[in-house]
């Protein structure tokens, strides 16, 4: 049995700054994960549909426009509504410190702000992957 971790990387909302999302996608691939890259301007609904079809273990959301408080929690809500309780959601982007605790309350388990080394993201995935083994 060869279990592979699958991760969806996407940008909800309308902002097109995908340098960070693309970097993360590529770096996670290099770390040995299977990354489904969805690109920019995705609705929470489309992200959740994709996460379910792809049966991913993690969903990574990137946003720089400031719409994170509205859009990140909506992704978590729709995932849970559609029974995907085991998918772990994390986020990144220009996110003020004071919003992070709110996002965590809403089920976004980690938030990576600019300048975070990729190793931190990998550590997060490694320490949490046992929870999504299925």
């Amino acid at each position: 049995m060869s279990r592979k971790i699958r991760i969806l990387i996407s940008k909800p909302g309308l902002d097109g700054h995908d340098r960070g999302a693309k970097y993360i996608a590529r770096a996670l691939k290099d770390a040995g994960y299977e990354v489904i890259y969805m690109g920019i301007r995705q609705s929470p609904e489309a992200i959740v549909k994709t996460a379910i079809q792809e049966d991913v273990d993690f969903v990574g959301l990137s946003l720089l426009s400031g719409a994170h408080n509205e859009l990140f929690p909506e992704v978590v809500r729709l995932l849970r509504e559609q029974g995907a309780n085991d998918v772990i959601v994390f986020g990144g982007g220009v996110i003020p410190q004071e919003d992070i605790s709110y996002l965590k309350e809403q089920g976004i388990e980690a938030v990576f702000t600019p300048g975070t080394p990729i190793q931190k993201v990998i550590e997060f995935i490694e320490t949490n992957k046992e929870r999504v083994l299925h």
Partner: peptide
């Protein structure tokens, strides 16, 4: 590394929310 970037579905994204279409990326 065994890793992969799966991006073909990007080109079929207008069908993402269509319940009659199922797309699965496979490494």
């Amino acid at each position: 590394t065994g890793g992969a970037i799966l991006g073909d579905r990007l080109r079929m994204q207008k069908h993402t929310v269509d319940a009659g279409v199922f797309i699965r990326s496979m490494a």
